[in-house]
Design a protein around this nucleic acid. Structure first.
Lengths: 205, 205
DNA sequence: AGAATTATTGACCATACGGTCAGGATCAGG
DNA sequence: CCTGATCCTGACCGTATGGTCAATAATTCT
């Protein structure tokens, strides 16, 4: 049920660390690392500033903890590509799942967007390490499908990039999307139809 | 040759304002508005901090001036859709031009990315105003092509969004793209091939 | 050349912010 | 109910940063 990580956490520690990370997610995703203040985080978490620093030694540590804690959740859908499934279905399911994550977790999307924009100071080794390996796995599966003629021939790396770009755009640039569309639109619902059609036409053999 | 805006600018004013905006573009695009300091801008511009403030009253004014000055340049390619051209060629040319802008002007791309991520505090009225009108024009052209059966039936708004997302991704998330691809890749060259193929397959009737 | 305008800067100010600390409150276990 | 550990906070510190200003230098114009 509850996490049992290396250090034993008291009940209060669990609750308050969770509240701090939750508040920090809101603050960082709205203003970026530099733009968010510990006071904001403390306020959002309902704690005093020194109390926040009691649980996390520094603003940097909060940020780093957040990023690493959310990275797995963020990348999880890519692990679900099933080599034995129908190629097109598998890709479309990935696209749909990723789009739903943008819709349901826009703060997480923006948090990562800020980090990458900044040059990924906290994630650089992960990008070229674990992330790259994860992508290589997915690329392998895609390449297999393409090699066996079950998927149109496209560059698998860029196929993945395009999925990321298109789905995250609706979270990261939501204010632009909504402003341009005007009222009376459901960006995510429309995007789901549009993207399914786009990838279907591109990838059908 | 030289701009002749409302207020007469001396030779030195022209030079120094230009240097400040250039330095500010570097600073803002690297660290975001809050992350960039006037000292950084001054250093990049080769001026002292008070001297920077002599030309622009505040950091905010520099930022706002930059954004509005670059917005036209950034949106220009969308104006070039020629209703009388070949639909697919026109769209592909737009995609290619936009991708080249990401390659050649990544700082501008990141500047806007930060601004939109932040919630577009300086651009909000433009997004729902002029930008929206520009998009509506392009949407009209696209809808015309689709209506006459010369382009596959897709949602024109989201077609535009997808072009923005895909091309700007290579500038805004360049560090991620490069880390995942590893050495020995030319992201922009590969993207050009991939995107042309993608949009061709999607939009061919 | 000399006056008037424009350009530049060192020194300074006020505030915001990340972080510390001593001491008090609260809680868990015996 | 006592004690030790955990939790919490007001007050404080040092630095970074946006911005000001008076004084000086450079430039322009006549």
């Amino acid at each position: 049920m509850t996490d049992q990580n290396e250090p034993q956490l008291t009940r209060i520690q669990q609750i308050n660390r969770e509240r701090i990370l939750e508040g920090a997610l809101t603050a960082f995703s709205a203003n970026g690392f530099r733009g968010a203040t510990i006071d904001q985080i403390a306020e959002a978490a309902g704690l005093s500033k020194p109390n926040v620093l009691y649980y996390f030694g520094s603003k940097d540590e909060i940020h780093k903890t957040l990023l690493t804690a959310l990275l797995d959740m963020w990348l999880a859908p890519m692990l679900n590509l099933n080599p034995d499934g129908d190629p097109l279905d598998e890709v479309l399911r990935y696209v749909r799942t990723k789009l739903h994550m943008s819709r349901d977790f826009p703060r997480e999307s923006r948090l990562f967007a800020y980090e990458i924009l900044q040059g990924a100071p906290h994630l650089s080794e992960i990008l070229g390490g674990r992330l790259r390996l994860l992508v290589e796995d997915a690329v392998g599966i895609l390449a297999g499908w393409i090699g066996s003629g079950r998927l149109a021939s496209v560059d698998p790396h860029h196929l993945i990039f395009s999925i990321w770009a298109l789905t995250q755009h609706y979270a990261d640039f939501e204010v632009q999307v909504r402003a341009v569309l005007g009222p009376g639109h459901d960006p995510f619902a429309e995007a789901e139809i549009y993207l399914e059609n786009m990838f279907r036409r591109m990838l059908e053999v």
